[in-house]
């Protein structure tokens, strides 16, 4: 065989063609009795239906968790989970936390030192000492 081929798998580029939201599921846990759940309960009653309607990609479950602080748990496509305790937060603050979880990628937080990375070759090419005009000293 003069030529054989190497088998690989094409790499995903989320957002280049289709965009898949990485947050798969949000579960809201509340307590009926405790005061720390007041904002969460208000959020579930007033804003959650609207939030769910605006984000149909996310499966939403609401369940009581008596005698505990309220918590929002997000599950992500990469298999990880993120939980935020929303005790004593207001309706609006709970909504912000839910949106934070919705927009998260599910990865651990990392410091970004190089903000732009690319799989494509640079158009300009890599500098080579063997090409171009010779420097006369």
């Amino acid at each position: 065989m003069p030529l054989s081929a190497i088998r690989t798998v094409a790499k995903p580029q989320n957002g280049v063609g289709a965009f898949i939201l990485q947050c798969k599921k949000l579960s809201f846990h509340y307590c009926d009795w405790a005061g720390s759940s007041r904002g969460m309960n208000a959020f579930i009653k007033s804003s959650l239906p609207d939030f769910a309607k605006r984000n149909p990609q996310i499966e939403i479950s609401v369940s009581p968790r008596p005698n505990r602080h309220p918590v929002i748990i997000g599950q992500y496509i990469n298999g990880r989970e993120k939980a935020i305790c929303v005790r004593r937060l207001t309706n609006e603050q709970v909504r912000q936390k839910a949106e934070l979880l919705r927009d998260a990628s599910g990865e651990k937080n990392k410091r970004v030192t190089k903000p732009v990375t690319s799989v494509n070759e640079s158009v300009r090419g890599i500098w080579s000492p063997f090409h171009g005009a010779k420097i006369q000293i």
């Binding site: 065989m1 003069p2 030529l3 054989s4 081929a5 190497i6 690989t8 094409a10 790499k11 995903p12 580029q13 280049v16 063609g17 289709a18 799989v119």
Partner: peptide
């Protein structure tokens, strides 16, 4: 749907070649 989910994936075709004797070819 195919274009968005399948063809949008990154595949560098030039890395798939495995030559045995490129000079002769």
């Amino acid at each position: 749907f195919f274009r968005d989910h399948f063809l949008s994936r990154h595949l560098d075709l030039s890395t798939l070649f495995d030559f045995r004797t490129p000079t002769r070819d």
